[in-house]
Amino acid sequence: MAKRRLRELVIRREWCKGCGICVALCPKQVLELDGEDKSVPARPEDCICCRMCELRCPDLAITVLTDEEEGDGA
């Protein structure tokens, strides 16, 4: 399977309740809560596209948009 690369980490601010699950459980500490207790992608360059923030978001506020990375020979 082709590797995935982050295109965008979309967070609907108005749906996010700032529970911090995505921040605490991200294996690469990509996310942070901002001054208004909303999740923001502070270090998107570190994202490994595991999508666990998306799947564990109780507010359905996170979508991890990815692109398929080109294979070596392609």
Partner: peptide, 26 residues
């Protein structure tokens, strides 16, 4: 997208911050 399966006008939902029920819905 999973957001296409919900009635978005009722979001944000009424569950408390961090409630697992939202994850189950997800």
């Amino acid at each position: 997208a999973i957001q296409d399966y919900i009635r978005q006008r009722f979001f944000p939902h009424l569950w408390c911050p961090g409630c697992g029920h939202g994850i189950i819905l997800n």
